[in-house]
Amino acid sequence: MIGLTHYMILSSLLFGIGVYGVLSKRNAVAILMSVELMLNAVNINFVAINRFINPDQVVGQLFAIVVIVVAAAEVSVGLALIISIYRHRKSVNLSDFNLLKW
């Protein structure tokens, strides 16, 4: 029988894949995509806990909507920053982003 445990394990696996992407990739856009994956895993947790622990309320879904809004804001600002840095450095490799180093 599928229950809360299975959903939470699935969401942990997705979160772990996202962490692996963030820590081992060099392309700034790919890292932003991995962060989106982690936020999605958090949303699955919110909705699953709402469904299995407090099914006669929808507060978990409301939290998930707020997370989606913040994720949309984050990805738009992040991509704008990447485009802005690309204009100066002609690269999206994170190793080349050493503007604050002397």
Binding site: S12, F15, G16, V19, Y20, V22, S24
Partner: peptide, 14 residues
């Protein structure tokens, strides 16, 4: 190191 940290975290959570 990235793979190790991600694997450790996932295993701990699961």
């Amino acid at each position: 190191w990235g793979a190790y940290i991600a694997l450790l975290m996932t295993a701990g959570l699961v």
